[in-house]
Design a protein around this nucleic acid. Structure first.
Lengths: 164, 164
DNA sequence: CGTAACCTTGACGTACGCGTTAGAATAAGA
DNA sequence: TCTTATTCTAACGCGTACGTCAAGGTTACG
């Protein structure tokens, strides 16, 4: 309804290279407040800024937000836990960046192993959830068939009452 | 560590027919406060009481608490939503109780259908979660194999450095 | 250069889900 | 009966995850 500044008609490379907080909020379906809040809490690495102080997010930041929301909604993790995982991701990025600079090899291997361990723990959490959810589902389906059985007997009864 | 009152040695039928709040709390791994809180909020039907006012829970109440916890932890539902579902369950019990007393047939059928609908919605929620979780899992497994690849190249490099 | 749309940093407010403490009553073994 | 364990209600407190102003700067179109 309100016409934006960066209207369009000129898909220059700079046009969608960086996003302001409003666009990120729209695309990720979270509020601007939430984005700033995540930054405060260390879940989002502080984005670059425009000269005037406006935040400029990257596509990677958008993916980060989406991942945070998944971890929150699907796994039910607290932001504190999610922060740990985000930091593990950061370690991986760092490793990748240092990949050619020759740091201590064994240390790097240790970090990689740790990153793997963290990720495997996430998978384990997911597996637990999956198993529990499958069990709940079959329970519920059982209930449904039971109640459907009742419904059927009621149908029969009305049939009888109608003298069928 | 502290020796309970209802020690044992006499498994009379009344012995485990009803449970006090402390035992329920232990068995369900929630606090007594939480049990009273759920009662306040209408998630638990007020249990019977001992003459002195002590709450006496049934095994069914225990199952209720466990179900509440599942809905909360696995599906991430708010207590308000869980209350709705609990009420749907209550409707089902009521139907079962009225099964012989001849109330309005069509009304009963409507209630049953509603109960089925509620349960099916729960199943749908679970299905969504299942799909999303499976996707997350494969993403994470993908990441793991990637990082394991890095690890392997590092292993090779140390081998080279050692002149193997 | 005005002005509308967008952004900034505080800072206080809020809904949810209990935790905690206080003070008193009850229950049941010794 | 005394004592210790358990429970009761009431009420205030707290951590999480943001919501909601307030007051003011920035950007960019016209």
């Amino acid at each position: 309804m309100t016409h934006k500044r960066s209207t369009m008609a000129d898909p220059t490379p700079s046009d969608h290279a960086y996003l302001q907080i409003g666009e990120v909020a729209e695309r990720t379906s979270v509020t601007q407040r939430t984005l700033r809040f995540y930054e405060e809490k260390g879940l989002l690495t502080p984005p670059s800024r425009l000269d005037g102080g406006f935040r400029l997010y990257s596509e990677h930041d958008v993916r980060q937000v989406e991942q945070i929301k998944r971890l929150q909604n699907l796994l039910g993790l607290a932001l504190a836990d999610i922060k740990e995982m985000v930091e593990a991701e950061a370690v991986k990025s760092q490793i990748r960046a240092e990949y050619r600079r020759d740091a201590d090899l064994s240390e790097r291997k240790a970090k990689l192993s740790k990153a793997i361990a963290v990720t495997e723990r996430q998978v384990a959490i997911i597996d637990h959830k999956l198993a529990a959810l499958r069990e709940m589902k079959s329970d519920l389906e059982q209930k449904i068939t039971t109640v459907q059985g009742w419904l059927l007997t009621l149908e029969e009864r009305s049939a009888v009452e109608l003298g069928v």
